[in-house]
């Protein structure tokens, strides 16, 4: 069906086997490695569509693999799978740039759903936006290819999440987009962040793009629902 390349990084032989078998049944092309360093090298050489990454690994632990990749601007989607699933570990995994976090033991169907959701989100983020590569909001313009915002003669670097939130709003201009919709598009299935997290991103976007962030002209809050973009 899909043929997308997935990399399973897991040193427990049985877990690696049963996860890989089931992903292959779904039509993915799966490769397995059992060592963090080897995984890092492999991802650098040829980034797969998604990495399913264990945390406790020989060679280098999963958190460090993720951290190094993000530092090198390798934005391959990462799904952490680990037995260490307390809140601190979850937060750490997501803060280091993981896309989602699955605590062992997990259900097969849940794994499949999360893999499909991350891939869908990742594909959406990679395809060209319906309105093109640039969004103009008065004096400000956002380049969706370089993730930069030009405001007057100043240029700002935007984060992936900021760009994706803006894109979710800009694809349906004038419509109210709920916070849940944004969470689903940008963070994905059973997203970790709260809706409050989106509000914080919106505050930063307004500071960058609005002439007067206190009384926004382009990014409007619709009380109790979400946001509306009026270019």
């Amino acid at each position: 069906m899909t043929g997308e390349k997935l990399l399973v990084v897991e040193d427990e032989l049985h877990l690696a086997e049963v996860i890989a078998d089931n992903l292959e049944l779904e039509g993915y092309a799966v490769e397995v490695v059992g060592d963090g360093l080897e995984a890092l090298e492999k991802i650098r050489r040829e980034p797969p569509a998604l990495v399913l990454l264990d945390v406790m690994l020989p060679g280098m632990d999963g958190f460090e693999v993720c951290e190094r990749l993000r530092k090198e601007k390798v934005d391959v989607p990462i799904l952490f799978m680990t037995a260490r699933s307390d809140t601190d570990d979850r937060i750490r995994g997501l803060e280091l740039g993981g896309d989602d976090y699955l605590g062992k033991p997990f259900e097969l169907r849940e794994l499949m759903l999360r893999v499909a959701a991350i891939l869908k989100r990742s594909k959406w983020a990679k395809t060209k936006a319906s309105f093109g590569d640039t969004l103009v909001l008065g004096d400000a313009s956002v380049d969706f290819k370089s993730y930069t915002a030009q405001v007057g003669d100043k240029q700002y670097q935007l984060s992936t999440k900021e760009v994706l939130i803006l894109r979710a709003l800009a694809e349906r201009p004038g419509e109210v987009i709920s916070r849940a919709d944004i969470l689903d598009r940008v963070w994905g299935y059973e997203a970790f962040p709260t809706e409050r997290t989106i509000d914080n991103f919106i505050v930063r976007l307004r500071r960058l793009l609005e002439p007067d962030p206190q009384s926004p002209r382009y990014i409007h809050t619709v009380r109790g629902t979400g946001y509306r973009l009026t270019p």
Partner: peptide
């Protein structure tokens, strides 16, 4: 705590996935 969590949950995780695969008719 971290090690014991890993040691106990890992075999549960793989046994569960093997059995679930069989129950779902995937093997």
């Amino acid at each position: 705590l971290s090690a014991i969590t890993h040691e106990l949950r890992s075999p549960i995780a793989s046994a569960r996935l093997y059995v679930e695969s069989v129950l779902l008719g995937r093997a």
